[in-house]
Design a protein around this nucleic acid. Structure first.
Lengths: 114, 114
DNA sequence: CACTTTTGCTTGCAATACTTAGCAATGCTC
DNA sequence: GAGCATTGCTAAGTATTGCAAGCAAAAGTG
């Protein structure tokens, strides 16, 4: 498996850009870019990856994955979509009584706010 | 806008977990968790956020966004969730603020009952 | 060839993520 | 109430991110 460094280096070169070109357009120092391309940085920040993704025209998630971060939509294989985000799922099982009470409270909240 | 710290703190408390409970289940030190909950860490790593998202049953992207990282699908604020057939959804779209408050209230409800 | 500019890279250095150790306050058990 | 465990938190330490400065090799330019 290719290191993420080789990957982003290939991207840059395919666009015919120098490290300093990229520095100008992304505000990331050429020194740091160089370290990135040789995979010397273990955990580059998402912000950095985003800037590069934008400039190179690749998906942000792809870089995230290359670096080894967990990626939202597990592009890799099957992800059980079990944890759909619903408020109910977040707080765990809710009894009927609790549910009723929460609904009451939500109603109250909304009435109050307006 | 509520800080990300308050948000994840509310999540933990709504589940009735202590910092050391979370430490055991996520391998993240309770000291660090405490710092996270008071937003003392400016850029917590995606890996950390992922662990918390898993444990708390929240979408990874939501935490990423709260922290201020770019998110693949720039889903800002309200975001209508896909209509799940949960009671809360029947009531309509729930904003982040409302969600926060509901979590608080659920915590209160549960504490009261025992 | 001289001389300048451009290129990728390395070397400190400040900032900060994350941990281990330990504290004060609260809660439990007898 | 004494003794012990649990709670959240801070302090101090280590490691890593990201930058500014500067270097040697390569590439113009005359």
């Amino acid at each position: 498996m290719k290191s993420y460094g080789e990957y982003i280096k290939a991207l840059r070169e395919s666009k015919g850009l120098t490290l300093r070109d990229v520095e100008r357009q992304t505000e990331v120092s050429n020194a740091y870019l160089s370290q990135l391309e040789s995979s010397k940085i273990k955990q580059p920040s998402p912000t950095m990856l985003y800037k590069l993704a934008e400039l190179y025209g690749v998906k942000y998630e792809v870089l995230m994955e290359k670096v080894g971060y967990p990626v939202p939509q597990a592009t890799t294989s099957v992800k059980s979509r079990k944890s759909e985000e619903t408020v109910l799922h977040r707080v765990g099982v809710i009894s009927k009584e609790e549910e009723m009470e929460l609904l009451e409270y939500l109603k109250f909240m909304r009435g109050r706010r307006k």
